[in-house]
């Protein structure tokens, strides 16, 4: 049994469903990458897992429990974390306070986790007293990921972590993601830089019109001529 199992997921924002049967399986050791054209339901899938989009059909199992339509304050303690694509830091609060907010649901001592996050992103330790709004785009992304890691998640959901970053930072962020995964956190992310992301993905999902079109390891998908032609720009 996998950590996250999604079967025939249907859901959306109340009108016509955006997701029409998504299937996914992710283990804690995996890096899962969701790619696909605009409007395919990539971000919606992540939001549905995290209870931000209502699920009307199918099931989401996390750690053996059905979690569809649970709100974030129930999901975070279970070991699920989410980094939104935009506005993903508290701009008026210091880096350290941002991290603390990620640990809101915890009742135990979170200082070791904060140390762990600082070791992973040393630049954040330097800037820990600075308001997050004053940081660069790449550093903000680290704050956002750090915040999400503070709840000691088993699975981290990332919505386009490389959006708006310059190519140099894209690579850096991907390296960080692999590092986080090596530290024992499962990753499920949506990416526009499809080819680059699939290259290190242990599981890849190509979504179109709210359904899985192709599923496989990242390398398999890159190697698949049909995927390459339709979804990776040749």
């Amino acid at each position: 049994m996998s950590l996250l199992e999604i079967s025939s997921l249907v859901g959306g924002y109340g009108g016509a469903p955006i997701l029409n049967g998504v299937d996914m399986q992710i283990d804690q050791s995996d890096i899962g990458v969701i790619v696909g054209p605009n409007g395919a339901g990539k971000s919606t899938t992540l939001k549905a897992i995290f209870g931000l989009v209502s699920v009307t059909g199918g099931a989401i199992r996390f750690d053996g429990e059905e979690i569809q339509n649970s709100l974030p304050d129930r999901l975070v303690p279970k070991g699920l974390s989410f980094v939104p694509q935009e506005k993903n830091v508290f701009t008026s609060m210091s880096v350290e306070e941002n991290l603390e907010m990620g640990a809101f649901t915890r009742t135990d001592d979170f200082r070791p986790t904060m140390e762990w996050v600082y070791e992973m992103f040393p630049v954040l330790r330097e800037k820990r007293r600075q308001p997050a709004g004053e940081l660069s785009g790449g550093q903000r992304q680290m704050v956002a990921m750090g915040r999400a890691l503070m709840s000691k998640p088993k699975l981290l959901l990332l919505d386009e972590p490389s959006a708006g970053l310059s190519p140099r930072y894209v690579l850096e962020i991907f390296e960080q993601i692999v590092k986080v995964n090596k530290a024992g956190v499962g990753i499920l992310m949506v990416e526009q830089n499809a080819r680059q992301a699939l290259a290190f993905a242990s599981r890849g999902f190509v979504l179109a019109t709210g359904k899985n079109r192709f599923t496989g390891t990242g390398r398999e998908l890159i190697a698949d001529p049909e995927v390459a032609k339709s979804f990776l720009g040749g």
């Binding site: 995290f50 974030p72 304050d73 989410f82 508290f90 907010m101 809101f104 915040r147």
Partner: peptide
């Protein structure tokens, strides 16, 4: 500062 992110962070 950011109500959506607060919710996402698991803040009650």
């Amino acid at each position: 500062d950011n109500a959506d992110l607060a919710q996402v962070s698991g803040i009650n």
